[in-house]
Amino acid sequence: MSDDPVTRFKAPVRLDYTVTAGSVTADFLREILKGRLVGRRCPDCRCVYLPPRSACPTCGVITTEQIEVGPNGTVTTFSVIRFPFEGQVLEPPYACAHVLVDGTDTPLLHIVGNCDVDDMRMGMRVRAVWAEELKPTLASVRYFEPNGEPDVTYDSFSGHV
């Protein structure tokens, strides 16, 4: 018998889940398979959420209306990623950005491609670029890219930053 103190022991912890998205997110993912971005509108304050929310966090009511939005949008803010990590879709450097998709009130966090990072600007106009094979995930939008429209003013999106 050893008198050495016990300093460690292994107790692996693992829990498995089968998560269901719920009907609101499931509807959103189904539309993605058709190459469409669909948000949900609050019946009270008319705010359009993307990704959709089942309930409006401001009004506390069920969002009832599904509306197609995009495919264009505005970069409200961004950050340039300069380091590599596992699972990256684009080669660094590239930008991740909040994109206020046209017709929505909540910026969508996504990435911006086909754009020199030194050209990234708040107010820049972009459009969704879809993957060749659509899957029920937001990654089916590969990235947003500049759409050639002139920049919009900060005041035009300052309520959504």
Binding site: T20, A21, G22, S23, V24, T25, R53, S54, A55, P57, G60, V61, I62
Partner: peptide, 17 residues
């Protein structure tokens, strides 16, 4: 036994309302 339709916010909205 299995509710696949309601996510957490919708469950909470419906029951609290």
């Amino acid at each position: 036994l299995q509710d696949n339709l309601l996510d957490e916010p919708e469950m909470v909205q419906r029951v609290t309302a």
